[in-house]
Computed example of a mutant assay.
Amino acid sequence: MARRTVTRWMGWMTAVWLTAGCEGPAPAPTPEVETYDWRLPAGLPKPQVPQDNPMTEAKVQLGRRLFYDKRLSFNETQSCASCHEQARAFTDGKVHGVGSTGQVHRRNAQGLANIAYATSLTWANPALTTLEAQALTPLFGNEPVELGFGDKQDVLMERLRADPELVARFSEAFPGEAEPVNLASLVRALSCFQRSLLSGNAPYDQYLSGGKKDALTAQMKRGMELFFSERLECNHCHGGFNFQDATVHDGSSEALLPFHNTGLYNEDGNGAYPRVDPGVIELTGVPSDMGRFRAPSLRNVAVTAPYMHDGSIATLSEVLDHYAAGGRAHGLDSSRVSPVQSSFVRGFTLTPQEKEDVLAFFDALTDTDFLTDPRFADPALHP
């Protein structure tokens, strides 16, 4: 894939908005007022929401229907949910994503649990910081093809406008729009639904915030102590209420955009990652950005295998092996420590029992209510 700069990418995104008949590179502010009942799990703060897209129940419900609607792919074979399955915490279980045309992607599909708190929305693009902007990539992107509309925005709009029931839902969600079925409204509704995907009732949450001291087993508690210890260093990149450093909420003073090199590859002894996907450096050209990717949230991590940006690690046990070795590349050849990998990836030793304890703690991060909540399910199955 040819190197693209952040400026070039932003220019492409702006062109999408303009050719779709939108005014400028982003939706214009509206006089809407937030009326949504977040039903926040104990311990989770209120998400930060763009001023020009306040949450309403009508937009969330419209976004839910659009999320599961295969008409959002050009050949009508896939919906957003095809790569983001609720039972897998909105991942897909595949090593690499597969688009509507059958094209295999270079990256693993990320989960959407608590995506409302994320400061960046892909594995390695610092420019994508809002769900509204991110939605344009799967809809219209060609590198790779996901939903496959490319420059055919008019086809998508005509398709949606031909459904009277859907038009009525757009009108309800966006009553101030002269033509409610438009690209800006589409991405706003999708974004509102995604922001509603809050997960915060795992055994860990019940123990920490719910007052249920028996929610964690003794083994889970031992694993929790190890996870948060300086010995393992896990919490430096997977800390806070969302087990993710790239997190923002309504009370945040600033949004951080950290990306990390975890020593997954070191092809030349100087830290090089495979040319097919070298990380943030692909967009910035900055040498220190080689191999840097976003740390995902660990909520529901036990059901989101395989792992890493390229899906190259199959199990959580192997993930622990990777970090215990000080990076997989280092583990394969102890003389090849990457000079650009994170200083927190420096290796550690676990006994077999301690490893099982940490894995048990990962299980304690699984929110089974979230994985089955009908509010987030296909409306065709759960009206």
Rank of each mutant, 00 (worst) to 15 (best):
S288A: 08
T349I: 00
P54H: 10
D378F: 00
S199L: 11
L72V: 11
A124F: 12
E225T: 04
G99I: 11
V49A: 02
T119N: 10
P47N: 12
T262Y: 06
A377E: 02
G111K: 11
T137F: 05
F362V: 02
H84M: 02
L147E: 14
E57I: 01
S120P: 01
R299I: 13
A28Y: 00
E225V: 10
R71L: 06
G148V: 05
N53W: 00
Q48E: 15
M220A: 15
A380G: 12
C22N: 09
T130G: 04
I281G: 01
V167R: 12
L216A: 03
F376I: 12
V6E: 12
H238R: 11
E23Y: 09
L381R: 15
H84N: 11
V145C: 05
A295G: 13
F74D: 09
G327R: 09
N235T: 13
G327S: 10
N182W: 05
R292I: 06
A215Y: 02
G200C: 08
Q353A: 15
R88I: 09
P54K: 07
S191A: 15
G291L: 01
Q61D: 03
V6F: 01
A325Q: 07
Y273T: 02
S199D: 12
V95M: 10
G210F: 08
R107S: 06
G200I: 09
G200P: 04
L197N: 10
S342M: 04
E356I: 06
S312W: 04
E158R: 15
A133T: 13
T14F: 01
K70L: 14
F140Y: 13
L66E: 05
S229C: 09
M220I: 09
T130A: 08
F259K: 01
V301P: 10
L131K: 07
V16K: 02
R375I: 06
H249G: 12
L316A: 02
T351C: 08
D69M: 02
A28D: 13
I313Y: 12
D37V: 14
D214A: 10
P25E: 13
F67L: 06
C80M: 09
L226G: 07
M13C: 12
Y207V: 05
E32C: 08
E282L: 03
V248I: 15
G176Q: 15
D357W: 01
D277M: 00
V60K: 12
M224A: 11
Q51M: 03
E76S: 11
A87W: 06
A89V: 11
R231K: 15
N75A: 02
E32A: 15
N142A: 09
N261A: 11
T372N: 14
H309G: 12
M10K: 14
H236G: 09
D245N: 03
T372C: 06
A255E: 14
A109S: 14
V340Q: 07
P31G: 08
P41W: 07
T14Y: 10
A184Y: 03
W123K: 01
G291K: 07
E282N: 13
R107P: 00
P278W: 08
L40R: 04
A118T: 06
N75R: 11
